[in-house]
Computed example of a mutant assay.
Amino acid sequence: MNKAENILVGISIGDLNGIGSEVVLKTFEDPRMLEFCTPIIFANVKMLSFLRKSHESTAFLHGIDKLDQIVPGKINVYNLWKDSFNLEYGVANDVVGSYAIKSFVAATKALKEGVVDVLVTAPINKYNIQTEDFNFPGHTDYLNQELDGDALMLMVSDSLRIGLLTDHIPVTDVSKHITEKLIRQKISTIKQSLIQDFKIRKPKIAVLGLNPHCGDQGVIGKEDDAVLRPTIRKMFDEGTFVFGPYAADSFFGTNSHEKYDAVIACYHDQGLIPFKTLSFGNGVNYTAGLNKVRTSPDHGTAFEIAGKNQADHNSFKEAVYLAIDIYKSRFEYAQITEKPLKTKEKQF
Rank of each mutant, 00 (worst) to 15 (best):
D83H: 14
G114A: 02
V105H: 01
H55S: 02
R52C: 13
C37D: 02
K82A: 08
S49D: 15
V71I: 11
Y78N: 03
S54N: 12
S54E: 14
V45E: 14
V105I: 10
S57D: 08
L119E: 09
L80K: 04
Y99N: 00
P39M: 03
K53M: 06
V45D: 12
Y99D: 00
K112T: 12
P31N: 04
G73V: 12
I124P: 01
V45Y: 07
S57K: 08
L34K: 05
A59P: 01
R52I: 03
V77F: 07
K112P: 09
F50S: 14
E113H: 10
V95T: 15
T108Y: 07
C37I: 01
S98L: 06
K53Y: 06
G63D: 14
P72Q: 13
A110E: 00
K53F: 02
H62P: 10
T38Y: 09
T58Y: 11
V118L: 02
I70K: 12
I64F: 11
G90V: 03
E113S: 11
G97S: 06
Y89I: 02
I75L: 03
F60K: 15
V96P: 12
F42V: 15
I40H: 00
L111C: 02
V77C: 09
N125T: 01
H62D: 13
A107G: 01
L51K: 13
E35M: 00
W81M: 00
G73Y: 08
K53G: 10
K126V: 03
D65P: 11
T38V: 08
G73A: 07
K112V: 06
K112F: 04
V120T: 06
D68P: 10
E56G: 08
F36V: 10
L51D: 00
A110H: 07
V116Y: 06
M47D: 14
L87M: 05
S54Q: 07
S84M: 13
N93D: 15
V116W: 09
F50R: 14
I40T: 07
A110G: 07
D83F: 12
V77W: 12
Y89R: 12
N76S: 05
R32V: 09
I70L: 09
S49M: 10
